[in-house]
Every structure is written in C-alpha cells, then in structure tokens.
C-alpha cells in the first residue's frame, strides 16, 4: 500500500511539473505542427502536379509516383489535425482493447473513409452529374452524421458501463449473505467462470462485458467497434474528394481510386501508431493507479468507471465537433473559404 502511495506521489509531482512546463510543450507541439504541415504541403503540391501531368500524358511511372505521393500525403495529412484522432484516442483510452484491435480499427476507419469518398463521387459526380465542388460541399451532411454517430457511441458506452457497474456493486453481498467480506477474498464470479485465464493475464476487460460467457463479451465489443469505425469513417476527407473529382473529370477514374486508396493506407498507418500508443498508455496508467491485478473487484470497477468516462468524453467530442461544423456554414461556399 505504502509503495503505491509513493508512486502516486511521484505521479502527482510529475503532473505538476508537466503543467508548469506547458509553454515548453506548446513550443514542441507547435514545432511538430509546423514540420508536419511543411511535409504535407510538399506531398500535396507534388501530388497535384503529378495528377495533372498524368491526365495529360498517362504512363506507368507517373502512376507509380502518384501512388507513392498519395501514400505520403496520407501519412502526413493524418499526422496533422482531424481524421477522428480525438475519437480513437478517447475510445481506446477508456475501453479495453488489445493493440491488434486498435490497429484494425484505425485501418478500417481509414479505408471506410476512402470508400465513402469513392461512393460519394461515383454517385454525385458520375451518376447525378453534380459538379465536384458542389459534391464536396454537400458531404458536409455526412460530416454531421459522423459527429452524431460519435455522440451515439458515447451514450451507448455510458449506458452499458452504468448498467454493469450497478450489477457489479450488487454482487459481493449477494454471494456472502449478510456478512460483508473484503473484496479481495470475495469471489468475483467473472473470474471463477473463466477459470482458465492465467492470473497474470487477467485484465479489466470483461468488466463491462459482464459475468457471462466469453462469446457474449466478444459480441458486444465487436458491435461497439463497428459503431466506432462507422463514426470515424463516415466523414470523407475533402482532399480525397478533390483528387477523385479531378480524376473523374479527366477521364482517369481508376487512377483517382488508386490514389485515394494509397492515401487511406498512409492515413491508417499514422492513426494506427496513435492507437498503439494509446493502448499502451492505458495499460500503464491502469497498472500504476489500480495496483496489483489480484484485486479483481477493484480492477473491474475501475474499468467500468473509466468506460463510463470514455462514453462521456465521446459525447462531448461529438457535440463539440458537430457544433463547430454546424456553425461553419461557409465551408460549403464555392471557394471553400471559411469566413470568420
């Protein structure tokens, strides 16, 4: 116990130091943004130049270069702002997921984004004959839909965490009758039922999936993940839309599709990095904060509280983003300029 108090003290001190050195972090983060934007500019201009040359004189070399440039653009574009990074970090930091799942979610979201862009341009521009820029402007509704889904996801996670938490808290008394026993000795039946799990590997995870069989737990989390991917991927990137629109205009539809898929690979890669970092950070924090994994009850409850907070955070993000998007009406203007 005293050791944990010591660790907590260290963390508190570190937090204070961190807060006090925020200007330093500002500087670091600002430098990072400037660097990323520079790289992105570089790739974007090359990409546009390349696409224009290709439409004039198609060749395999140009197509290869285009794929490479699109990939690089995707990597740096995603390292910059946006692209559901707030959503994926909030989600992975508060819901128990393995690293592999985090990577899969990031990749799926990136490719869904590309597919939505391809579908939007096929339907609006190729199918209905809407001009590219108007098509870009009208995807604003998809953006709002995506932010709405983020909020739905948050509410859903919160509701479930709350339900499980209540069930969990009723648990000890039910099993020990009138006599209260310390949580550490009270059998949390979640674990007795999955007796096969080696003690060291036990994680909070099944907290919110409850004390049922493993398959249900899996099913539930799978549904969450689907919702998360939809929420992040519903919103096509306007960079991708412009590339597709111009490619379609020049009669090089397939090359546009290829470029956008390469872009998605780059985007997914960057977001995956962030996902990996988040999953590890979560594990670290939980280990330090909650202590030994033998205290199952405590782990389980903490997991639920964290999941609840995560849901609230997602509701907040969804609301903020939707509000911002709703208020920037001029984004749909012909020049794309957004007037403040």
């Amino acid at each position: 116990m005293s050791r944990r108090v010591g660790i907590m003290a260290v963390i508190v001190v570190l937090a204070i130091v961190l807060l006090c050195s925020l200007p330093f972090f500002d500087h670091l983060y600002g430098t990072f943004i400037i660097k990323v934007l520079n790289w992105q500019r570089h790739f974007h201009r090359q990409l546009v130049g390349n696409l224009v040359s290709f439409t004039q004189l198609p060749s395999m070399i140009l197509a290869g270069a285009l794929a490479f440039l699109s990939f690089g653009y995707g990597v740096f574009h995603a390292a910059g702002p946006g692209h559901g990074k707030a959503v994926i970090t909030s989600y992975l930091a508060t819901q128990q997921r393995h690293v592999g799942r985090g990577i899969a979610l990031s990749m799926l979201a990136a490719f869904l984004q590309a597919l939505v862009a391809i579908a939007a341009v096929s339907i609006l521009v190729l199918g209905l004959g809407v001009a590219t820029l108007r098509a870009v402007a009208s995807t604003r509704y998809l953006e709002l839909l995506s932010f709405g889904l983020v909020m739905v996801l948050g509410v859903w996670l919160m509701a479930r965490a709350w339900r499980k938490l209540r069930r969990l808290r009723r648990l000890p008394t039910r099993y020990t009758g009138l006599e209260w026993q310390p949580a550490s000795t009270a059998p949390s039946n979640a674990l007795t039922m999955k007796g096969a799990t080696p003690p060291l590997q036990g994680e909070v995870c099944h907290c919110c999936a409850g004390h049922h069989v493993d398959t249900t737990a899996l099913g539930v989390s799978w549904r969450d993940d689907l919702l998360a991917v939809l929420a992040m991927g519903m919103r096509p990137c306007s960079g991708a839309l412009l590339v597709l629109g111009v490619a379609a205009l020049m009669g090089q539809w397939m090359i546009g599709v290829m470029a956008v898929l390469a872009m998605a690979l780059g985007t997914g890669l960057t977001v995956s990095m962030l996902a990996i970092l988040t999953v590890f950070a979560r594990k670290l924090v939980l280990r330090v904060m909650v202590g030994k994994e033998s205290q199952r009850q405590r782990w389980a409850e903490t997991g639920c509280w964290v999941a609840l907070a995560g849901g609230a955070l997602l509701v907040f993000w969804g609301g903020t983003l939707a509000w911002t998007a709703w208020n920037t009406t001029a984004a749909g203007s012909i020049l794309g300029f957004q007037m403040s």
């Binding site: 934007l37 992105q40 974007h44 702002p81 990074k85 909030s90 955070l313």
Partner: peptide, 16 residues
C-alpha cells in the same frame, strides 16, 4: 490523458 490527446488534434486546419 484522453482530453490532452484530443485537444491536441485540432479539427480542420490544413490546406487543401
């Protein structure tokens, strides 16, 4: 942690 990570990723500010 999540807030920090989230706040540090602004919305739509990159030249297209």
């Amino acid at each position: 942690v999540a807030l920090l990570a989230g706040v540090c990723s602004p919305a739509i500010a990159h030249p297209h």
